[in-house]
Structures are given as C-alpha cells and as structure tokens.
Design a protein around this nucleic acid. Structure first.
Lengths: 223, 223, 223, 223
DNA sequence: CATGAATGAGAATTCATTCAT
DNA sequence: TATGAATGAATTCTCATTCAT
C-alpha cells in the first residue's frame, strides 16, 4: 500500500540530516526485518542504511526500540489502510478491503510479523486502528456481509490467521493468502454456520496483544 | 492430546538408561522449544532434562539435530492424530477431527511451529500424513461436509492459519483456536461461497514446505 | 633479527587505533604461540594483548586466520633475513648467514614452527624466499663453500632439521643450534663426503610443504 | 625394526586377558599417536583397540600415562636398537647403524616424537640407552669414524635434528631422512671441520630432556 | 571386570551495546 | 555528531575423566 517509512514528521527537535538518517535506518531495518527476520544483526542494518552502528544507536537506544519503531511504522500503514477502507463503497465491503490491505502489508514485512500484532510498546495508534476496525465491522454487520456474532476480536484473530498463512507462503507464493482471505470472508457471512465457540473476550485479546511469548515468570536470558 | 515423546521404541542399540535419558532430553527439549522458542540454550534444555550438556550432545550431535528430533516426534503425533481421525464416525467428520487434534498439538508445541510445517529434514512420515489427510479430505468430499474445490493444499494452508492463531493466543487463551477452526470448517462447506482464488498448486506447496524463509539465493546476513 | 611484527604497513583501510590493536594482538599471539604452542586459548592471547576477545575476532575472523597472520609475519622476517643474506660478503657465505638468521627466528617462535614450514595458506612470500635461497645456494656453489650436489631441497631439509634441534633445546639452551648449524655447514662442504642418498625431488618437497601431517585421504579422528 | 609393543612381560599381577587388553590398547595408541598425533581422542584409541574407554582408563589412569607408556615402549625399541648396534661389525659403524634404526623408529611414530626425546617420566631405560650410545660413540671415536670432539650430547642433538626432518617429511617421503643422516655422519668425520661452538653440556642436556616446552612457571591450562 | 553413558570445564565464536577518535 | 572499533557475556560444541549397569 503506502511505501513504509514515509515522510511522517518526526517531532520538531530533530535536525534535517538527523531526521534523514533516522528515516534511512528505519527503512533499512524494515527491509532487513522483513526479509531476514528479527535476528538480523544491527550491524547489517546499519550497513544497509549506509550509516555506522553508532549512528543507529544514537537514534535508537536499543535494538528493541528499533524493532518497535519499525512496528510503529507498520502500524501506521495499517492505520492508513483502515482509514482508507472506511472510504470504500459500498461501506459493507470496507472490512474485506481492510483485511486484504493488511494482508498485503504482512507480506511486505513477513520477517517481523511476530511483533506486529503484539503490543509491548502500547502504541496509541492501536486504539485508532481498533476504532476504525470496529466501525468497519459495524458497517459490515449492518450491510449484511458479516454475521452479528462475529466480534471485533474475531477480526483480530483473522489477522493472526493470515499471518500464519503469510509466514509460510510469502516467500514462494506471495498471493496465496488471497484464497485464504476469501475463505475467511465466506466463513463470516450471514448464511454460513456460526462457530460453536464464542469469540475471545476483550481481556484475553488484550493479554494476547500484550505479552505474547513467555507465560508470566520464566525465561533464561534477557527479555 | 497424546503426551509427546511417548514410549516409542528408539531402536535396539541403546542401553536402558541411555534410552531413558534420550527420552528425558527429548521431552525437555519439546517443552523448552514449546515454551521458550527455538532460541533457548542447550544448557537450559539439559538442565531441565536433569542431565549435563555432554549427555545431550552424546544423543544429539548438534542442536539442529535435537530440533529435528523434536519435530520428528511431533510429526509422529500428528501422524497418530491423522490415523485416529481415519477411524472417526461418521467418516465425513474425520477431517474436522484431525484439524482439531493437530491444533491441540500445535498449542502444546507453540514454540517450534516454525519448524513443524517445513520440511528441511524430508521426514518420510510426512508422506504418510499427506496420504491420510488426502483420504480424510476425500471422505469429507464424498460425505458432503467439504466442497469439492477444496484441495489438499487448502488443508495445509488451514494448518498454517491455525498456527498463526495459536502462536498469538496460546499463551493466554489456549482454546481460542477452536472458534477459528469452526470458522474454517464452515467456510469450506458446500453451502459456503467458493473463494475467488484457486488453491496453491502442488509445487508451490512443496516449495513452501521445503525452504521457508529466505527466497532462493541469499546469504543469511553478512553479504 | 628483526623484532617480529614491526611497523610493516597494514594497508590503509585501518584506523590508527585499530592498526595499533592489530599489532598488539599479532605480537601477543606471536609470543603466546611461541611460548605456549598453538593450543593457547584465544582468550589468553587477547588478555596478553590487553584487548577483549571481541577485538581479536574483529581483526582476525578465526583463530586459524590469526595463526596464519603470525606465520605470515614470521615468513616476512625470514624473507628479510634471506634478502639481508644476499648482501653478505663474501657472497659464498650468504647461505650460512641465512641459515643462522632463520635459526634465530625459529628460536623466537619455537611454539609455532610446525606451521612455519608448511604452506597451507600458499603465501606468495614463499616464492620470494625460495628465489633468494636458490640464489644464495648458487653463490655458495660457485664460491666453493657448498658441494654441487647439495640442492635447494637440501637447504629446506636443513631448516627442518634445525627446527628439530630448536624445539628440543630452545627453552634451556637457546644457542644450542649454533653447533648444529656448524655441523651441517661442514657436512656440505666440497671436501666432505657426499651422502649416499639423493635429495628430495621438487614434488616431494612441495608435498611436504603443502600438507604436512595426515597422508592424503583421512579424516581427523572420528572415522 | 621391532614391532612395537611386543610380548614384554608386564609384571606378574596381571591376569592373562587383562594383559592382552593392555597390549591391544598400547598398540592402538601407538598407531593412533603415530598417525594422528597426540591430540587424538582417547575414545578413538579405545575404539581402535576394540575396547571401551572404561577399560582403557582401568589400565591407564590418565591419557598422559598412556602417552608415557607408549613412549616407554618406543624407548624400549630404541634401547633394543642400541643394543643391536653394539653387535655391528666393524664396531666403528655401530653408531651409524643406531642412528638409522632410531630414525626408522621415529618415522613409525612420527605423531609423538615431541614426547619421545623428553623425559618427564624419568624412565630408567634412558640410562641404559645412554650407556649404549656412549659406548657406540666411544667405538666410533676409536675406530676413526667420528671426531673426538663430538660428544654424547651431540648424538642426542642429532636425534632431535632427525626428528625435525622426519616430522616434516615422513608423510610424503618416508626415506628422506636417509640423506640427512648421511650428511650428519659426514659432518662428524675426522676430516670434516669442527664446529665453532661446543656441544651442550650435560646439565643443559638433562634440562632439555626434562621439561621441554614451557619455561618454568607459566601456562594457562592443565599441565 | 568391561562397557559405554554421563559429566562439566573449557574452547571458539557471535552480537548487542558502549566508547574513543 | 558520525563512525566503527572495543567489549564481554552468552552460545554451541569437545573431550578427558568418572560412574552406573
């Protein structure tokens, strides 16, 4: 959709070239994480960005913070996609449009999806996305393209399911997710049978978004 | 479902205590990978198994081989699940049963799903699983629970999609996948709309299973 | 002769401090290998050089490469010695001078002689040394200090024989080789009896220099 | 010459099969050290001997002790060679015969020569060898094949020098030492010029035999 | 006793992060 | 300020030695 890491203003206190560096790094990191996964070394990212590691660390105090920034950018793109979907006509098809846009973004960033849909950093943009998605879902409900028992949480689960497909197929069949999305959309139509289990509740969803990986107190190494 | 690493005979050439340790290690590794991901250190696995690293390395000459062994076990469990599903009555529901069993196994091994559905080691058991799944799908076709245009490849994609859900929810809502599976099953019923895109073809599937991550010719990081 | 690891320029692409460290490491490695043998741990070398292991590995990507670099330095010193010997007067004594210089260098590096006289890395400097030594030998032939049947290969064997003496005596009698060299020089004089066996031929010499230890096709230990 | 590890009686308190095992191990170790060097793992030696490591460790409490035993055997062979040389006619040629026999033994055991000519274990057989060699040297002196200024210590140095040649050539030219020995023998003839340096003195020789490698107090690891 | 499994200290190497230039 | 060199803890793996069967 939108070219990741655009010219979104980065706060006022950043000199022009500094901001340019920040952008270069972010873009390089986005590509590196997307292609090679989060395990890529910072050195390789810095190299790709055409800067030294020192510069990278000046902008992003830890690798973690860089990851978060990349995810933040990606979330912005998702937010843009959601906003764009709100303009789709007929309105009842906005949700489908959003799912497809989001899937395309996942393909582009296939290496860091593990972090896309969790919320360690509690990014405020998620609330905006949530609001948009709820609105899209409401329109679909009202327009009769999606059953009433399909909740907001189900949409999030759909995104996760798309992630599973994308992570396994994006390298060799970058469009394989399309059929899967069609399947999902068919599954939530009013004339499809309702599942026997209820959606996740809001607190479960929050928990899932919050601290995926590692059940409360465990873990050998750092994080 | 089945307790991973059961008393599957380990070939005759292993002393009793050695076999016991092998099992302990495999079980510990299964749990560690499941909970902490493949990045856990071998030391921590050995500790969990109550053995020294040396012992671990005596049984599994590299960490990679340990991972493969764990995946192999898991595949066996999946194979068992597929075989069990072939006994389900009515036969048309066997596929659904299999998907649910496989999902439960994925929850148990949530940390190493990335390796479960690829095929670096070209384990022959996969062929057996494939045969079973094709049979299950055939029964479902004939029994009218699944549309004829749903192919074997689609079932694999479903497993990947379940993986996506499991990886995001297993920690906090270990049953969240159930609703998703219901959704998927609803989506493939004869009365549900067919997707606008065709299933993956066999060669794409093979490629996806084979060398996930990293588009054909690329070095890991350095270059 | 020359203090190993001198101010030989290390190529321009190295910052001042980096070059200094490289030198420190090389010098420390030279001493460590010389005193303790090639088995010394890299950590101990790094410590001796006053740097961290990481620094060592930044300059030399493997321990092997460090060994090669040390040997390379040593070869340079040998090359210098050969060149210096070419200026000795009378010219017929140049070969003797060279043998003595080379012996002194061997004493200094007694721990890594095993690698000095083999040629895994196919260092081009060896050709230069060979040329010089052939010239020195020719002068000795013409000057009547060495018999005509003494070939270049014999000089190499002499160096190996000196190595044997040095490795056994350097720790307690660092000058013991002098008498041995005198003996050898006496043995090759025109008035000394010719040996009953011919010198090695060139291909044997090359093989000996190339892959010492381990007769062509064998694995290290296991098989 | 003699097949290493013969049926030398091993003290009375060893049951027949135990003694047989000891011999098998010793022979395997001799071959392994000879071919692969002292770095071979004990496991590989045990395997070669057709016994378990446990058995090996029952006979030889440490790897070091095994090495010493192998060297001890080798010394016995050297002793045998010296004794045999005492029967050579004319007596003045005994020393040359001994040097050649000893060289052949070194070729056979090229992997552990580093330990052959030192005397950590203070093996009494060395004294016997020394006595024989002194006698051989005396006969050579009297017979006029060796100059009077050539001392016992010089003969030891010759053995070391042969070692240097053997270690570098044995793999590819197992007879290359012959020419070198001829050279050495020529060098010590009465009509050859005397070296400008005196032989090692007895205490230096003892020191060299005693604790080669590692000047008094140093050394990161174990020994 | 023989066996080979278990042990764990130590070795080489990597990489996120800090710091001198 | 930008650079990339330095750092060292953590990781995988080996091997001499001990111990249960």
């Amino acid at each position: 959709m939108s070219p990741s890491v655009p010219d979104r203003p980065r706060g006022p206190g950043l000199r022009r070239d500094a901001a340019r560096n920040r952008t270069k790094i972010l873009r390089a990191a986005g590509r590196s994480f997307g292609e090679d996964g989060l395990e890529v070394g910072v050195e390789s990212i810095a190299h790709r960005a055409g800067v030294g590691v020192g510069t990278l660390y000046r902008r992003f105090p830890t690798k973690e913070s860089l990851i978060e920034a990349v995810v933040h950018e990606l979330l912005h793109d998702v937010g843009d996609a959601a906003r764009a979907a709100l303009t789709v006509e007929p309105a009842a098809d906005g949700l489908a449009a959003f799912l497809r846009s989001a899937a395309a973004l996942q393909v582009e960033h296939r290496g860091c999806l593990g972090r896309l849909w969790d919320d360690r950093a509690h990014d405020p943009i998620r609330q905006e996305i949530e609001a948009s998605v709820r609105e899209l879902l409401g329109r679909a409900h009202r327009g009769g393209t999606v059953r009433r028992d399909i909740a907001y949480e189900d949409v999030v689960v759909m995104l996760w399911s798309i992630r599973g497909v994308v992570e396994s197929t994006a390298w060799v069949a970058p469009d394989a997710w399309r059929r899967h999305v069609d399947l999902l959309l068919g599954a939530v139509r009013p004339d499809a049978p309702a599942p026997g289990y209820p959606p996740m509740d809001a607190s479960q969803l929050r928990a899932a978004l919050d601290a995926r990986r590692r059940p409360p107190g465990r873990g050998p190494a750092g994080a």
